[in-house]
Design a protein around this nucleic acid. Structure first.
Lengths: 338, 338
DNA sequence: CTTGGCACTCAAAGGTCACGAGTGCCAGAA
DNA sequence: TTCTGGCACTCGTGACCTTTGAGTGCCAAG
């Protein structure tokens, strides 16, 4: 096992490298950190750390930089989560308080996270899978055309156009609307299919087709919208990735446009706990030189979606984690209020 | 005025430079284009073109590259719009036909444009300012809480939460809903304020407060949502901007996130005609080395929004214009159908 | 007005060299 | 056993120089 001091050396290396973006050598380390030992000793420790795979040298006559494994150890054992200063907290709250609707909350959250961490921010729209139905509205637009509007408890609204097999009267539609709502309002999405299963049977023969069509569309909407959407911001921060960024920025931009990849990434962590994925721990090739810090957020105690940031593996983990956690907390509050 | 041949030389320079991304010299020109004159003659023409400000040399012993003014002349006088091949047309139609709702149409359009032009695509959500109201729905969520849902003829749905000054009964709400709809359905947004002006007066004293509140929110929504939203895609194509792109990519990414800038840019052109803004013609500083090709699109004869691409000034204008125009046309068709 | 010739310019590419940060290793001290 | 100072070695970086060649402007002749 690694001695206490060697861990201390690793921590120093990570901190210095994150700060300077340059490989750090033994001499510089002893000067900037009061380790109480000479450069030679530090060199021995570094050699040991390199044997274990926690650090590496870009080339022989250069200093060391942390490997993914090194960052992993740093995050797991050596670093805490740095809480934000109270001015920062106040700024967050002020900024989020101005939001007018759900889209706006998400948009502001993205901007906030990007600004705070100076990295790329990713916010998942609140998930519908754990949401409940607030209201279902049916509107007759043309004799055989109905619009379905679904309103969720997170304030999200989805609409679908439905072409019915036969013309629908206003009365029949009102009837369906009333019965539908009485069954599903306040219920979870996942419970809806069962709750409306026998609904067509209680209608006249000639309306059953329409009812079935409407229900099918409703269920389809519920399923479809569980596949989440994302909002991304702060891509300009990609230019801060490093001196060699022309090579790395391209695949990252491509990965960011493949929302599927990001969704999978955010979804990987089971619950709402904070997750840190570092470099090659990320399956997607284009993101191999990035790290992703994500956490769940929600209106109540349950997480309804994830948010996080994508940055270079060489990032300020404690600070980033602190910002992500704080933003998630405040967004949760905002959602609970509305 | 410039002679016919000099214009031909300019065209050749633009075409070559767009293709090779490198300054083009007199010798290379005579080899690649059958101009029927010697390099020396071309040199004279180039000197003249440079005097007029259409081309420039990066440094003394290099070839020439077109200036913004040169591109302008090229676009206005020398280049047509290159129509797409029929496989391309078919691909567009197939790709867009699969869209399920408005968001999806916009999302697919962005991806399509980005892929087709290999540049950054920008699509404005269909504008509400020229839209008409399809339906207004009022839902009672709590005694003094009402949700307003606005449905437009472009299939867009907007919702707002309203806290009423006093509890509202279901009947009163139904009454208001009916009267409101009878007045505004099918009307343009811009006409709505006038149409509902005297509506509160026809209600009982104790309901007037609620009615006014609801109307105020409705009007606010109409105005607010006229400020458009954008969808952007293909940012990975920014890496194709040129060898020196680390310098240029940053401000462009920043400008792209400032949606206001883009909206202003798209909005500048009066009607739905195709607009090309080149380099310094763009007011925003970060976009000074880019060109924007935009065109209006709409469900009927009227344009409801704009779409376009942002690329380097050194872009294939005829091809880009062709793609933009074709996509706009097909999107219009899709919108008209739904 | 066009053309071939010619001297000139200058960025890019390649080569050489000195510098110095950083390393590994070893022998001696604690 | 662990730490330390010393020392030879590595090698990327940057400064400086030269060569190369594409491209130019100008001029006199066709």
């Amino acid at each position: 096992m690694l001695s206490e001091r060697r861990l201390e050396v690793l921590r120093a290396i990570v901190q210095d490298y994150v700060g300077t973006e340059e490989p750090v050598g033994s001499k510089a380390l002893t000067e900037r950190h009061r380790l109480g030992v000479s450069p030679a000793t530090v060199r021995n420790d570094m050699a040991a750390l390199e044997d274990e795979g926690f650090i590496a040298q870009p080339h022989t006559s250069a200093g060391r930089i942390p490997t993914d494994k090194g960052y992993r150890l740093f995050v797991d054992k050596l670093a805490g989560v740095k809480p934000l200063s109270s001015p920062e907290r106040r700024a967050i709250q002020n900024f989020l308080d101005g939001a007018v609707d759900l889209d706006d909350v998400v948009a502001r959250t993205v901007r906030l996270l990007a600004q705070l961490t100076r990295q790329v921010a990713v916010v998942q729209y609140p998930s519908l899978s754990r949401s409940t139905v607030r209201h279902v509205e049916l509107l007759s637009l043309a004799p055989a055309r109905v619009m379905l509007v679904l309103i969720t408890d997170t304030g999200r609204v989805e609409q679908r156009m439905i072409d019915c097999p036969a013309p629908v009267g206003e009365n029949a539609l009102a009837d369906l609307r009333a019965r539908l709502n009485s069954r599903v309002v306040g219920r979870r999405f996942t419970d809806v299919p069962q709750l409306v299963q026998d609904l067509p049977e209680s209608f006249d023969q000639d309306e059953r087709g329409t009812v079935s069509t409407v229900l099918a569309t409703l269920l389809e909407t519920l399923v479809e919208e569980t596949e989440e959407r994302l909002m991304i911001g702060g891509t300009a921060n990609l230019t801060r990735f490093g001196h060699d960024f022309p090579l790395t920025i391209r695949p990252v931009l491509e990965a960011l446009e493949e929302q599927v990849v990001l969704l999978k990434l955010l979804g990987e962590a089971k619950d709402s706990a904070m997750t840190v994925r570092i470099g090659h721990e990320i399956a997607h090739e284009g993101l191999n030189s990035t790290s992703v810090v994500a956490v769940g957020y929600g209106s109540g105690d349950e997480a309804v979606a994830k948010l996080g940031v994508v940055g270079p593996t060489r990032m300020d983990y404690p600070g980033t984690m602190g910002a992500v956690r704080a933003v998630a907390r405040y967004v949760g509050q905002i959602l609970a209020e509305s």
